[in-house]
Measured scan of single mutants.
Amino acid sequence: MGFKLLSKLLVYLTASIMAIASPLAFSVDSSGEYPTVSEIPVGEVRLYQIADGVWSHIATQSFDGAVYPSNGLIVRDGDELLLIDTAWGAKNTAALLAEIEKQIGLPVTRAVSTHFHDDRVGGVDVLRAAGVATYASPSTRRLAEVEGNEIPTHSLEGLSSSGDAVRFGPVELFYPGAAHSTDNLIVYVPSASVLYGGCAIYELSRTSAGNVADADLAEWPTSIERIQQHYPEAQFVIPGHGLPGGLDLLKHTTNVVKAHTNRSVVE
């Protein structure tokens, strides 16, 4: 069995187990497998329904001669939608809004960016022009300005110390501490036991640490421990890039980060 097929099978099995364990909360999309990078042309966006009122959005972007996937989250909030992270750029984010209108038909009224990198804030200006209120932590807003990236308009308070959590509509926002970046936030959907790890969490097929220019490698494993301790009931975990899975993604990420750190020390 090929690795790609095995990865998709694991996603399907995880979703099936969740649907059985929580039949009222989960209505997993039966329309197909989780979209992969090879299936999404740059400039297009796919939506994948995880649970009743919960979707991931998947886009792709060219970077350094390669094409990478990027995940975000959409959560229903009454007759409105909360968006977590842009679709990595203005063109993708405009396509995301169009796809949401086509498939869901509810307005996106608020959006949260989970850290300051372009795959999370690139497209904020498109959201703002569409009347979406954009939010991020003060740290993310400051770092985005320093980096020359787009800056969300509103500040999220109460997320300055490791372990801080605040309720934001249908989700809980959690600051686990520094990891992929010093400002990275985690998003949890309690009604569906869905954990969105953003770039602080890796997919299972990833074996290298990737972009760690703004990471705190020493603190990252401790931050992941905080996530595990705060959300032990999480059933569906979405990484910032690639295929979702279960809580095993947290341990896998820790292993990859520690291996990278150990290699760096040896070198």
Rank of each mutant, 00 (worst) to 15 (best):
M1F: 07
G2K: 10
G2V: 08
G2R: 10
F3A: 07
L5G: 08
L5W: 14
L5S: 15
S7N: 09
L9A: 14
V11N: 10
V11K: 08
Y12A: 13
Y12F: 08
L13G: 07
L13T: 15
T14N: 07
T14D: 09
A15F: 15
A15C: 14
I17Y: 13
M18K: 12
M18N: 15
A19C: 15
A19H: 06
I20L: 11
I20K: 15
A21H: 14
S22V: 13
L24E: 12
A25Q: 15
A25K: 15
A25W: 14
A25D: 14
S27Y: 09
S27W: 10
S27G: 12
V28F: 06
V28T: 11
S30F: 12
S30D: 12
S30A: 14
S30R: 12
S31A: 11
S31K: 09
G32H: 14
G32Q: 09
G32D: 09
E33H: 08
T36E: 14
T36I: 14
V37S: 15
S38C: 07
S38H: 10
S38G: 10
I40Q: 10
I40T: 14
I40W: 14
I40H: 07
P41M: 13
V42D: 15
G43I: 04
G43E: 08
E44P: 07
E44T: 13
V45I: 08
V45T: 06
V45G: 04
V45C: 03
R46T: 08
R46W: 10
R46L: 10
R46G: 10
R46E: 09
Y48S: 14
Y48C: 07
Q49R: 13
Q49A: 11
I50C: 03
I50E: 04
A51G: 09
A51D: 10
D52L: 10
D52W: 08
D52S: 11
G53W: 06
G53H: 09
W55F: 06
W55S: 02
S56L: 15
S56I: 15
I58Q: 06
A59S: 12
T60C: 05
T60H: 12
Q61F: 07
Q61V: 07
Q61D: 04
S62A: 10
S62R: 10
F63E: 03
G65W: 05
G65T: 08
A66D: 13
V67A: 15
V67I: 09
V67W: 11
V67N: 15
V67K: 15
V67P: 15
P69V: 15
S70I: 03
S70V: 03
S70L: 04
N71R: 02
N71D: 04
N71L: 03
G72Q: 03
L73F: 05
I74C: 02
I74Y: 05
V75E: 03
V75S: 03
V75N: 01
V75Y: 02
R76A: 10
R76F: 06
R76K: 07
D77H: 08
D77Y: 07
G78F: 07
G78Q: 09
E80H: 09
E80V: 09
L81W: 01
L81T: 06
L82D: 00
L83A: 02
L83T: 01
I84Q: 00
I84C: 00
A87L: 03
W88I: 00
W88A: 00
W88Y: 01
W88F: 00
W88R: 00
W88L: 00
G89P: 05
G89K: 02
G89R: 01
A90W: 08
A90H: 09
K91M: 14
K91S: 15
K91E: 15
N92W: 00
A94Q: 13
A95M: 14
A95V: 11
L97N: 00
L97D: 00
A98D: 11
E99M: 13
E99F: 08
E99V: 14
E99A: 14
I100C: 00
K102R: 12
K102G: 11
Q103E: 14
Q103Y: 13
I104N: 04
G105S: 13
G105V: 07
P107D: 08
P107C: 05
V108P: 10
R110T: 10
R110S: 11
A111F: 07
V112C: 06
V112F: 06
S113H: 12
S113R: 03
H115D: 00
H117A: 00
H117S: 00
H117W: 00
H117L: 00
D118Q: 11
D118I: 07
D118E: 09
D119V: 03
D119T: 00
R120T: 02
G122Y: 08
G123S: 04
G123W: 05
D125T: 09
D125Y: 10
V126K: 05
V126C: 02
R128F: 10
A129I: 09
A130H: 12
V132Y: 01
V132A: 06
A133Q: 14
T134R: 01
T134L: 03
T134G: 02
Y135D: 02
A136M: 04
S137C: 03
S137F: 02
P138H: 10
S139H: 11
T140V: 04
T140Q: 05
R142H: 13
R142N: 13
L143E: 06
A144E: 04
A144V: 09
A144H: 04
V146D: 13
E147P: 06
E147D: 09
E147K: 15
G148L: 07
G148K: 10
N149T: 09
I151M: 09
P152C: 02
P152V: 02
T153K: 11
H154Y: 10
H154T: 11
S155N: 13
S155Q: 14
E157S: 11
G158Y: 07
S160Y: 10
S161A: 13
S162H: 14
G163Y: 05
G163H: 05
G163N: 09
D164Y: 07
D164T: 11
V166C: 05
V166T: 09
R167E: 13
R167F: 12
F168K: 02
F168G: 01
G169S: 06
P170Q: 07
P170M: 06
V171W: 03
V171H: 03
E172C: 03
L173T: 05
L173A: 00
F174S: 05
F174L: 10
Y175S: 01
Y175F: 10
P176A: 06
G177R: 02
G177D: 06
A179R: 03
A179M: 06
S181G: 01
S181L: 01
T182K: 13
T182V: 12
T182A: 12
T182R: 13
D183K: 01
D183H: 03
N184D: 05
L185T: 03
I186D: 02
I186E: 01
Y188L: 01
Y188I: 01
P190Q: 09
A192C: 05
S193L: 14
V194A: 05
L195T: 01
Y196S: 01
G197W: 01
G198W: 04
G198Q: 06
C199P: 02
I201H: 06
I201G: 01
I201A: 01
E203M: 01
L204H: 13
L204Y: 10
L204F: 09
L204I: 14
R206P: 06
T207A: 14
T207R: 13
S208L: 11
G210L: 04
G210T: 01
V212I: 09
V212S: 07
V212P: 01
A213L: 13
A213W: 07
A213I: 14
A213R: 14
A213S: 13
A215N: 03
A215F: 01
D216W: 04
D216L: 06
D216P: 02
L217T: 09
L217E: 06
A218M: 12
A218G: 13
E219L: 07
W220C: 05
P221D: 06
P221M: 08
T222K: 11
T222H: 14
S223F: 05
S223A: 10
S223G: 03
I224K: 02
E225V: 12
I227G: 03
I227H: 01
I227V: 12
Q228A: 12
Q228G: 10
Q229F: 11
Q229A: 14
H230A: 15
H230Y: 09
H230F: 15
Y231C: 06
Y231Q: 00
E233S: 12
E233N: 12
A234G: 03
Q235G: 09
V237D: 04
P239M: 01
G240Q: 02
G240V: 05
H241I: 02
G242H: 06
G242V: 05
L243W: 08
P244D: 00
G245D: 05
G246Q: 11
D248Q: 14
D248I: 07
L250E: 04
K251C: 07
H252T: 04
H252Q: 05
T254A: 10
V257P: 02
K258P: 06
A259V: 10
A259H: 10
H260P: 11
T261E: 11
N262C: 05
R263V: 13
S264F: 09
V265T: 13
V266F: 13
E267D: 12
